[in-house]
Amino acid sequence: MRLGFNFWLGATLTALVILAGVLAHWIAPFDPVLDADLMNSELPPDATFWFGTDAQGRDVYTRILYGAQISLTVGIVSQVINSLIGITLGMTAGYWGGWWDDLVNGLTNVMLAIPSLIFALAVMAVLGPGLPSLLIALGLTNWSWTCRIARSSTLSLKSQGYVQAAQTLGYGDLRIMFTQILPNMMGPILVMATLGMGSAVLSEAALSFLGLGIQPPFPSWGSMLTDARQLIQLAPWVAIFPGLAIFLSVLGFNLLGDGLRDSLDPHMRTRKP
């Protein structure tokens, strides 16, 4: 399998985000919340405060490192929830067909017709702000594409000889789905999940920016942007660095997903002699 430049760029960016999040506790020079010092507020980047400080005098670099934790958690957890819902509905709909398929299809189409951010907003409105409700809201919004892919993969895999063989060997439906179908469609699902992480990070930023996501003083890239709103002319670095972090991490997830897709797509694979 040959992986292109885009894949490696994506993988590097993603790895940086993961490292930042995992190692934040050890590599961050300050505490993201407690080290507020109004004496140091709105300082431009220098040797001590690499990315400058915000209105409360907190180190922007530190807060971005910790913000990576939030973004990663949101990206991974929401995509795990998305994939679980999408796979379960899509695979069973494709395998059993009939009224269940019609129902799932209808539900998928309804979900696709609702703008995902509006849906997430509605869920947040019911559950209230905070990380857990953010995770639930984003987990419930983006499963429809995964569901569609799972369903169509199941439909094509169902007619493969080995699935029919499993039926004649006495396998039950659930066993067939888990041992014969699921492992063979994980490729495209993984691609969807990786691409979905990018959009989840964006949604988190948007929801936090609207004040519905992560509540201050805890740092998330979205809420950091909210705080920076009034300072954009006085201290542009407060807005630029979280914006850059969002941009680079979303770019990373997307490039990684594209790269994975290309390597898994048989049409894109270079033919072996």
Binding site: G161, Y162, A165, T168
Partner: peptide, 19 residues
């Protein structure tokens, strides 16, 4: 039924689970 009738498939490339 599995112990009564089994099947050999036409396409040997599609009849085995690649994983």
């Amino acid at each position: 039924r599995a112990k009564a009738v089994q099947m050999v498939f036409q396409d040997p490339y599609a009849s085995l689970n690649p994983r």
